[in-house]
């Protein structure tokens, strides 16, 4: 009887080890197949013609789009696109964005060539102005590459925006970053922290992934907070202050589901 019990236990142990090893092998095979898919995607992008010089390669499934192409920000989950300015400033804002507060008259948009790249220069007159792309997103990340010239005030990257009273944001003012949301006009801050202000272009990044919200400068996490998810909304830029800033690009990623 004692021997029978031992044989039975040994069988269970061997079976468990075999099952664990099978699971591990299955995961390896899945990772391998995902790796192959990813390399094919990357290869596909390499094959893609680069365009007229304003286009650049971004990310594994990235696309570069210049301004003034209408619904340029329509994307599938897992997609990345980078918006760069081109053409006439006022026309550009009218075609690619709409305002949820303020107007073109409050930001005087102008496209200029700086260091070999076209940039959108905005001169804020002190009236809060927020302009957003026309499409709405849920789980999303965006990186705006900005440079403050003589701007004094707060620059916000906004997402899940419905109107001036309902949106989420990462806001930078001098060397302070705030991460939060406004619901029915009431502001709630998830996290707030100081950061080292980079000289030159500042890649300001925000991600909203489920209940996780993060604010970055470049690849460095500055703020990290949690709250409920909000309904899909617009993404864009809000200026609350006076002075000039330049926008070199805005990269948008519609985050892929598990």
């Amino acid at each position: 009887m004692k021997h029978l019990k031992l044989i039975f236990c040994s069988t269970i142990l061997v079976t468990s080890a075999y099952m664990l090893s099978s699971c591990s092998q299955k995961n390896n095979e899945q990772a391998k197949s995902e790796g192959q898919e990813q390399s094919q995607m990357m290869k596909g992008n390499e094959d893609h013609p680069k365009g007229n010089g304003e286009h650049e390669h971004v990310g594994t499934s990235g696309e570069q789009q210049t301004a003034g192409q209408g619904e340029m920000m329509d994307m599938k989950k897992g997609g990345n696109k980078t918006w760069t300015p081109g053409g006439n400033g006022a026309e550009l804002i009218k075609s690619d964005f709409h305002f949820i507060t303020g107007s073109i008259g409050n930001i005087y948009p102008e496209v200029k060539k700086v260091e070999g790249s076209r940039v959108l220069e905005l001169k804020a007159d002190g009236t809060p102005a927020a302009f957003v792309f026309h499409s709405q997103y849920g789980n999303v990340g965006l990186i705006a590459t900005l440079k403050k010239l003589d701007f004094k005030g707060t620059i916000k990257l906004i997402h899940h925006a419905k109107d001036l009273d309902n949106f989420e944001f990462v806001a930078v003012s001098e060397n302070n970053m705030k991460l939060g949301r406004v619901v029915n006009g009431n502001e709630k801050i998830f996290d707030e922290s100081k950061f080292d202000v980079p000289t030159g272009w500042m890649p300001l990044k925000v991600t909203a992934a489920g209940t996780h919200y993060k604010g970055y400068i470049g690849s460095k996490t500055i703020t990290h907070g949690h709250d409920d998810t909000m309904d899909d909304g617009f993404i864009g830029l809000m200026l609350d202050g006076k002075g000039t800033i330049q926008v070199k690009s805005i990269e948008v990623a519609v985050l892929e589901d598990e």
Partner: peptide, 14 residues
Amino acid sequence: VPMQAELTAGNHSD
């Protein structure tokens, strides 16, 4: 964390 990995990072954290 790359932007496309944020949901995975959030789920892993949860």
